[in-house]
């Protein structure tokens, strides 16, 4: 297990403050945050490459805060791969093994195994500058993994790649993690990437951890207005609980009263994901507690899906497929019905 306690790092312009995280064995942990939020520095601080102001880093009940990087057993892969340009692919991968007392055959076979697993066996004699971005990233991954680190740090490993390469490397990362079970910390600014790969996700906001949870929790149970917006809930309201009945509450959000499942009282925040809202031309006689008519205020076509904003008031955004958008023949100003379950409304 890897524990980070109250870690504070000075970045000059601002600070990362009191970062506390517990990462479980073999977990794929994602740090999600905007560009220039200090994500790289956080990784470097964990690896011992950047000084910490205070705080502790523990690996398997061993404190490593003051230990030099070469003794930490933490591998790192940078966004730009940082392969050694003067060494071949094979020499790059073998680099970390050269500091151990291993026979030449042992090194050779470990490099070969790693190269095979990553699909780069045919590149071993090549120089880094002749490789594509995806190939370089695999080499960097192999170089870090071949030493069997206690922890693997990935700094935006997919960000500099074209969409196709990115998808295939994403599969490689998932596959490698499944096979080797190495505890992994992956930082990214890509929300979707974090949802696909992460066992758990920590969201970094203004130098602090805003929320830690499974992708499902991050998506459905934001713990703050910032998180609700960040996770693209789109529908974030504040309101007041007007009635409570055994976990069912009616919340007045100024205009309409939404049914939600909560035992909270008084002032609350609500979020509702656009994909959880049904849109229809007629009132649906369903069991869903929330059903309201409204006029279409805006239509945003995103290619495969369409976002439709309906004014109840307030404005509510729902997401529908392109197919149903066409079937319903929606246009601005039309009156439609929006319907969603009380359990889809997240109260915080």
């Amino acid at each position: 297990m890897i524990a980070i306690k109250d870690l504070t790092v000075d970045l000059g312009e601002f600070m990362l403050r009191d970062i506390t995280l517990d990462i479980r064995d073999s977990e794929y942990f994602i740090i999600l945050g905007p560009t220039a939020a200090g994500k790289t520095v956080l990784l470097e601080a964990i690896a011992g490459l950047y000084p910490v102001v205070h705080g502790e880093v523990w690996i398997n009940d061993r404190e490593i805060t003051g230990i030099s990087p070469e003794k930490r057993k933490i591998g790192i892969v940078y966004q730009d791969q940082s392969l050694f340009p003067h060494l071949s692919v094979a020499q790059n991968i073998a680099f970390g093994l050269s500091f151990r007392k291993l026979s030449r055959d042992e090194v050779r076979s470990r490099v070969d195994d790693m190269a095979h697993m990553l699909g780069i066996a045919h590149l071993l004699e090549r120089r880094p500058n002749t490789l594509s971005g995806g190939e370089k990233q695999r080499v960097a991954l192999g170089r870090a993994l071949v030493t069997n680190p206690d922890m693997l740090l990935l700094d935006e490993p997919l960000s500099a790649l074209d969409p196709e390469t990115k998808e295939s490397l994403q599969r490689v990362l998932a596959e490698v993690h499944r096979r080797l079970g190495v505890t992994t910390m992956h930082v990214t600014h890509d929300f979707e990437e974090s949802m696909v790969l992460g066992d758990r996700v920590a969201v970094l906001h203004q130098g602090r951890i805003a929320q830690v949870g499974t992708p499902e929790q991050i998506l459905r149970q934001p713990n703050s207005e910032f998180m609700a917006h960040f996770s693209l809930s789109r529908n974030v309201f504040s309101g007041k609980v007007v009635s409570q009945d055994e976990g069912y509450a009616l919340v007045d959000i100024g205009g309409v009263q939404l049914a939600a499942m909560t035992s909270q009282e008084e002032q609350v925040h609500l979020s509702l994901r656009p994909e959880d809202v049904l849109l229809s031309l007629e009132h649906l006689g369903s069991s869903a507690r929330n059903s309201f008519p409204g006029a279409i205020a805006d239509i945003v076509d995103r290619g495969s899906v369409v976002y439709v904003t309906v004014t109840l008031p307030p404005d509510l955004t729902c997401m529908i497929t392109r197919q149903s958008f066409r079937d319903l023949g929606l246009q601005r100003g039309m009156t439609v019905w929006v319907t969603f379950k009380a359990s889809s409304v997240h109260v915080f």
């Binding site: 690896a47 490459l49 990087p69 070469e70 790192i76 730009d80 940082s82 500091f99 030493t147």
Partner: peptide, 23 residues
């Protein structure tokens, strides 16, 4: 020389001396 190359070398087990002489 990109300083990240030296940093990577350190995480791979190289002491400051070795990172200097090998990278």
């Amino acid at each position: 020389v990109d300083v990240k190359l030296e940093k990577v070398a350190r995480t791979l087990g190289a002491s400051p001396w070795r990172s200097f002489f090998r990278v």
